[in-house]
Design a protein around this nucleic acid. Structure first.
Length: 343
DNA sequence: GAATCCATTTCACCTTACGC
DNA sequence: GCGTAAGGTGAAATGGATTC
């Protein structure tokens, strides 16, 4: 049995005795047709069972309606959630997404970007950290980054510094004797650096005893667990008998630390107060729901896609005016008090 | 190297409405 | 009745990879 041929504009045109142009106008500029003719075409579409052909549309106008996305990893639940929010902006903007996970491999990410450009994506959202924004800015496609170094490209970031202040304020209100911050080494050009800087500034300003554990924790559960176990051992040894307020740089790591404590003590000891960052699902689903600084992922995703769509629309104009300077939007974080501080 | 896939775009034509 | 503008529509060119 031969393959059944799809119904095309040509078929609709012959059926209705209009030209293909008129059929195209029906879909793209319906107001340019009389109501009577719109009705005739509408009826024909139903009778012929026409199925929209996006591939032909892309071929004709060169606009793929695709946005490329590079995610660094799915180990952090934050990225799964933010991607979920990005995908849901389809309802608002109609763009579809081609997603790659770079796994922190710079050359792999370059290959993925090349592949995305070959698909004629109209814009790109970059969440991975490996490729400098100066290099991204050279690509002939609008780009918006989320929570990464962004000097030369548009971006949407959480106010990490304010988030750290909120976390420290909460721990200070609980009269913690010592404030501790666990983080990976972060370059000052990365927005997340604000978490460490905010911690440091708050402790200094309020003359609170503090300490920062800054070290690479790894990208697998096993390595993170092993490194956090070492840090916890040091905390137990150094600050025994004191009330410890720990601000961990993300919820995934906060959850691993919480599990280590619960495995050891059966519960979260009274002298431990814990705050994470991101409000990722891990913080809510933990054995003890974790207090956290919530990144408004829905807003981050919406603003990022919105900023990208603005640039993509500008490029479609006859005389596009490129941005003089990259736009950087900042989203306010929200404090969530849960059981790791509210005992 | 030409034909094919198929929707869009550009240019151009025809019709109708309106003012003088 | 004529000229002009606006509205409605069609023919042909177009895009790039694949197939013939």
């Amino acid at each position: 049995m031969g393959k059944k041929k799809n119904v095309t504009f040509d078929d609709i045109a012959k059926y209705t005795h209009f030209s293909k142009t008129t059929i195209s106008r029906y879909f793209n500029h319906p107001d340019s047709l009389t109501l009577e003719n719109q009705e005739i075409i509408s009826k024909a579409l139903t009778e012929l069972n026409y199925q929209e052909n996006k591939v032909a549309k892309i071929l004709a106008n060169g606009k793929t309606e695709f946005i490329g996305v590079i995610i660094p990893t799915f180990y952090h639940h934050y990225y799964a959630e933010i991607l979920n929010q990005i995908l849901s902006t389809y309802e608002d903007f109609g763009y579809k997404f081609l997603v790659f996970v770079g796994n922190e491999q710079e050359d792999t990410e370059r290959r993925y970007i090349k592949e995305l450009l070959a698909y004629h994506i109209e814009g790109m959202l970059i969440l991975s950290h490996t490729i400098p924004s100066r290099e991204l800015a050279q690509l002939q496609v609008p780009i918006v980054t989320i929570e990464r170094e962004d000097q030369y490209v548009c971006s949407v970031n959480t106010d990490n510094y304010m988030g750290a202040i909120q976390a420290c304020s909460l721990l200070a209100r609980h009269q913690c004797d010592i404030l501790l911050h666990i983080n990976s080494p972060t370059d000052p050009s990365v927005p997340a650096y604000g978490r460490a800087q905010g911690f440091l500034d708050f402790c200094k300003e309020h003359q609170l005893e503090h300490r920062m554990y800054i070290q690479e924790l790894g990208f697998t559960h096993e390595t993170v667990k092993s490194h956090l176990a070492e840090i916890l051992e040091d905390i137990e040894r150094t600050y025994s008998g004191r009330k410890k307020g720990i601000f961990v740089s993300n919820d995934t790591h906060a959850n691993v630390l919480l599990n280590l404590l619960i495995r050891k003590y059966g519960t979260l000891p009274d002298d431990y107060y814990l705050v994470g960052f991101d409000n990722s699902p891990a913080s809510q689903e933990a054995v003890l729901p974790i207090s956290t600084i919530g990144q408004q992922m829905d807003k981050l995703a919406y603003e990022a896609v919105s900023l990208l769509v603005d640039q993509m629309n500008e490029r479609k104009k006859r005389k596009p005016v490129p941005l003089a300077e990259p736009i950087h939007k900042v989203i306010t974080p929200i404090l969530f008090r849960r059981e790791t501080t509210e005992k």
